[in-house]
Design a protein around this nucleic acid. Structure first.
Length: 716
DNA sequence: GTACTCTGCGCC
DNA sequence: AAACGGCGCAGAGTAC
């Protein structure tokens, strides 16, 4: 092993190179259980004037430098928190604060908008004080209401700590209640309080008036409010602060979420007008034929069955196949409409309108460390799953101009109007003022990382040489008659069908890299052909990339050894290390990748499992799965995927910091893609900034390739 | 009304 | 020597 691995091990001998040190203020230390009961504290400390701590006596160095805050609010208008997000909601003039509970120096205090509050004001003014809250809501309310309406001083991001970000980092549930429960901390379930707060944001059905906030109601809300502060303190005490580098990443996340991304509202309104009209017509026609809604899956299936067409499901692919055979005209029409209507992508237009601010920017679209290995996940508009265009047009502005006419017929020269709209959805995002968007993505990054980690260098080189391995694999899967001709097509000249075939080849290479079995492959790509699926999977594992399966099994063995030896760092051949640690009295399997970045498997256990190959140990952990906190098996493919995604995320984060340092504000990230907004951004600059490699990538001989563009509008 | 499950769809 | 890729959202239907 005379290569990078030796150097790596030599460099890191003696333990974990830990970049995970705490960098802000002092650890939080105050009792999770208050001494006083809720109501006495509430009534005795309204607006910060505590009986035991008279106004003016609170001196900041003695309070642990920390204030834990939680707001209860309502909107006596039509702005809803969930679709609008915290920033639009907080900026809405009809949003009002019901109560603010804050905890400082071991005591709970209540603030309401009625009175000034000198102690709270001086806490906000003191740069040494950190404000702690669960999620970004409190920051948004502070900015728009406490500062904007009540004259408190602003609290910059650097002075906030987010317990939800800590939950995300440790791969715990993000909502307060389930995070507490996962950590075995006491959970206060105040369903009545919750109902009360919700009811205050709804007008009375008879009178149409919003409920009046009486002192009694406010007192009840305050009790509910206090429970959330208690919960936030409990999380803070259990998890502490983010490690240094992650604290920086979170700070960048907050900056991106708060700066928002530019929206072309004229475009969105016009697109929505066409979409509503087209959907309206299609649904009406569908109703005439079936007396049903196209979205009623089970009922539509029954209707089709009664009309002579039996379908196992109504997925687009199934419908596409069915349309190839002979059908009654009615059934054909029903299927055509259904497949068009089923795409809910155009709902993004509504999602954009719900969360965009009065300055035309949408905020809060990303969740820090949303996935186990640390990638962001999308929120509100879900900017990470914009449809890839099926209709491609040289100049987006021509298409945008056509959509802005609001006339569906203006789109027909490119195709069916709904399909054209779906294809153009990304263009709703646009640079503002004289700025441009610049975007770059790391080409085939996951395949490169997994092959590099596995030391399958011949295939890394193949990818680097620009060979289209995806098309190569696709040609095999679909047994294309003229493979050479397919490989020879210029990528930009490919028909949608040819691109789609290539996309399947891409998914295959990715899936195979992460342990996809032949049955899984068969069900996805070749339903009736066991032997083809077996052949392809077998070829990948034994001929194409034989070192990759070794990587899987090594990672799994290493994780199991770490589980068997609590506290001991166990390294895999690729340099990735695992250790079973205890955090908040729970076992966490910690995985540390090549640059020191850690990610976590909460409540990890070793379990003997009966499989096809006899009884063997398996790692289990707990994660949110289908909205539930439940046990999950960490099988080899899963462990490998997590490691690869963590490394890909680190490359991305490094590049995001480089953009910011060079003055190019990042406005979006989509896993392997970064979007910045600046008048001077160019394709070449994006490539230059993103192509720089960190030392670890050089050491594992991981080449990065960046595909980039710049322009006024977001596009693929 | 709210919470949950299921189907379906989109991206990486 | 060997499985189940990850993620969020919309809408329908159901239970409470």
């Amino acid at each position: 092993m005379g290569h990078w691995l030796d150097r790596f091990i030599a460099r890191t001998q003696g333990g974990v190179t830990d970049n995970d040190t705490v960098d802000i203020a002092s650890p939080f230390s105050c009792p999770a259980q208050p001494k006083d009961d809720a109501l006495s504290t509430v009534s005795l400390s309204v607006n910060g004037v505590a009986v035991k701590t008279p106004q003016g006596v609170i001196s900041h160095p003695e309070v642990g430098h920390t204030v834990v805050v939680d707001f209860e609010t309502r909107n006596a208008g039509d702005c809803k928190l969930k679709p609008s997000g915290a920033w639009r909601y907080a900026a809405d003039p009809a949003t009002e604060i019901l109560t603010l509970t804050y905890h400082v120096a071991g005591e709970y205090h209540l603030w309401t908008p009625a009175l000034p509050c000198p102690p709270l004001a001086s806490l906000a003014a003191d740069p040494a004080i950190t404000f702690v809250s669960h999620a970004g809501f409190e920051q948004a309310i502070w900015h728009h209401l406490m500062v904007g309406r009540y004259g408190f001083l602003p609290i910059p991001v650097a002075r906030w700590h987010d317990t939800q970000a800590a939950c995300a980092y440790f791969a715990l549930p993000l909502d307060l209640e389930r995070a507490l429960s996962a950590l075995n901390l006491p959970v206060t379930k105040d369903k009545e309080g919750r109902r009360l707060v919700l009811s205050l944001a709804r007008p009375n059905r008879k009178t149409g008036e919003f409920p009046e906030i009486t002192p009694e109601i406010r007192e009840r809300v305050a009790a509910y409010n206090r429970a959330d502060v208690e919960g936030t303190i409990a999380i803070e005490t259990a998890l502490g602060r983010l490690p240094k580098r992650e604290r920086r990443v979170w700070g960048l996340d907050q900056t991106i979420n708060q700066r928002g991304i530019g929206i072309d509202l004229d475009f969105v309104h016009a697109a929505k007008k066409i979409a509503d009209q087209q959907f309206g017509e299609a649904i009406e026609e569908f109703r005439k034929l079936t007396d049903l809604n196209p979205t009623q899956v089970e009922k539509v299936r029954n209707w089709l069955c009664e009309n002579g067409t039996e379908l196992e499901d109504l997925r687009a692919e199934t419908i596409e196949e069915t349309l190839k055979i002979e059908l009654s005209p009615e059934a054909r029409r029903v299927l055509e409409i259904r497949s068009r209507i089923a795409s809910t992508s155009l709902k993004k237009l509504d999602a954009i309108l719900a969360c965009v601010g009065s300055d035309g920017r949408a905020r809060g679209l990303l969740q820090y460390h949303g996935a186990t290995p640390g990638r962001w996940v999308g929120r509100l508009v879900q900017p990470q799953n914009f449809p890839r265009p099926s209709v491609t047009i040289e100049d987006p502005e021509e298409l945008v101009a056509a959509i802005k006419t609001g006339d569906a017929d203006a789109l027909r020269k490119w195709g069916e109007p709904i399909e054209v709209l779906v294809s153009s959805l990304r263009h709703a995002i646009a640079a503002q003022g004289d700025a441009l968007l610049g975007a770059g993505d790391f080409e085939t990054i996951e395949a490169r990382v997994v092959l590099s980690l596995a030391s399958q260098h011949d295939k890394v080189e193949l990818l680097e040489s620009g060979a289209d391995v995806y098309r190569d694999v696709a040609a095999d899967i679909f047994r294309l008659d003229d493979k050479a001709a397919y490989l020879a097509i210029d990528k930009k000249e490919m028909t949608p069908e040819q691109s789609e075939t290539r996309q399947i080849g891409k998914n295959t290479v990715l899936g195979c890299g992460f342990g996809l079995g032949w049955k899984g492959f068969r069900d996805k790509y070749c339903k009736d052909d066991d032997s083809l699926a077996q052949r392809i999977i077998n070829t990948y594992r034994t001929e194409w990339a034989p070192k990759v399966p070794q990587l899987w099994y090594d990672l799994e063995r290493t994780a199991i050894r770490a589980m068997q030896n609590p506290g001991v760092i166990v390294a895999a051949a690729c340099g990735v290390r695992y250790r079973l640690e205890t955090k908040a009295e729970l076992p966490f399997l910690v995985c540390q990748v090549l640059n020191g970045k850690k990610f976590h498997y909460a409540n990890a256990q070793l379990e003997m499992r009966e499989g096809d190959w006899g009884k063997r140990p398996a790692v289990t952990y707990w994660a949110i799965k289908d909205h539930h906190w439940r046990k999950v098996f960490a099988w080899h493919g899963h462990l490998t995927e997590n490691v690869v995604q963590a490394l890909a995320r680190e490359l991305l984060v490094d590049a995001m910091f480089r953009f910011e340092e060079r003055g190019f504000p990042v406005v979006l990230t989509v896993h392997d893609e970064i979007v910045v907004e600046h008048p001077a951004i160019t394709e070449d600059l994006v490539k230059e900034i993103m192509s720089e490699r960190p030392q670890w990538a050089v050491e594992i001989e991981l080449p990065v390739a960046v595909e980039a563009w710049s322009g006024r509008r977001y596009r693929k």
